[in-house]
Design a protein around this nucleic acid. Structure first.
Ligand SMILES: [Mn+2]
Ligand SMILES: [Mn+2]
Ligand SMILES: [Zn+2]
Ligand SMILES: [Zn+2]
Lengths: 140, 140
DNA sequence: AATTAATTTAGAAATATTCTAAAATGTTTT
DNA sequence: AAAACATTTTAGAATATTTCTAAATTAATT
């Protein structure tokens, strides 16, 4: 019976995160996690939900994306002013960013070495290291 | 005679960038470049200008920051949604970002090594490599 | 079924940034 | 130095993203 596994998968994620499995969260989790990894904005996800005839407000999409992020199910990626991407790939990795079209592409964590940087200042710890390789169209 | 050198310095920058030395640009250039390197937002710079009794609109501050950036006099740094910093340090360097208070601190380019990353996809060239080391308050 | 707690929502608000077109200023030509 | 021309500045509106508020709904527990 096709169609139940995706629900199961999304349900597992919510339980793992300690979040109540509401209709909206289940639907958003399915949209987010039942496909290949991706980088999506709140508005894009809301549009996808509307498109899939899931009734959910934009406020709830924002709330849910932040809850998922806090729970470690998503990662927020900021590369441009006034636009936040939410990344379904939560493994240690980095990004190519195409300045032309705003696309993001993953770079596996193992394939970048960040070495020699100074120790974190006293009273702080390194929460994350982000490497963004900004790409421009090749000149003619 | 103190007070003329700063004008000369700012004037040089504008000429180097091929920008007309208007009252507003000169004043903003002095505020930006006649002190130690820093990371400043458009609103902060506008507030400083108002404070220094320089009459300039917020729109002009944005225009000028972008012109300076395009001319290579500034660098835009994006680390948080809905907030752009302009960096008077245009040398090749990276950043510590304190998630607690939104502060940025430079890391000299030579003290970070980014190695082994994949080649830029066909049709693109690497415009810049940004390394952001995100710091959180040390846990108790 | 009643109680309690968590969630969703519409709409307003806050924030950041860009746009528009008119006024002002700077530059070049005569 | 006036006239002509080009650039810049500006107020205010517009756009865009994100957050907030408080009321309505839904879920979980008793
Ligand atoms: Mn968006
Ligand atoms: Mn700001
Ligand atoms: Zn990613
Ligand atoms: Zn810097």
């Amino acid at each position: 019976m096709t169609g139940t596994r995706p629900f199961k998968h999304a349900l597992d994620r919510l339980q793992q995160a300690g979040l109540r499995p509401t209709r909206q969260r289940l639907a958003l989790a399915r949209l987010l996690f039942d496909k290949v990894d991706r980088h999506i904005t709140a508005e894009q996800l809301h549009a996808e939900a509307v498109d899939a005839e899931v009734q959910v407000s934009l406020a709830t999409v924002y709330n849910t994306l932040h809850q998922f992020t806090d729970a470690g199910l998503l990662r927020e990626v900021v590369v441009e002013a006034g636009r936040s991407y939410f990344d379904t790939n939560t493994s240690d990795h980095h990004h190519f960013f195409f300045e032309g079209n705003g696309n993001l592409q993953d770079i596996p964590g193992e394939s970048v070495t960040v070495a020699h940087f100074p120790a974190a200042p006293a009273g702080t710890r390194v929460a994350r290291v982000d490497v963004i390789i900004r790409l421009a169209p090749e000149e003619a």
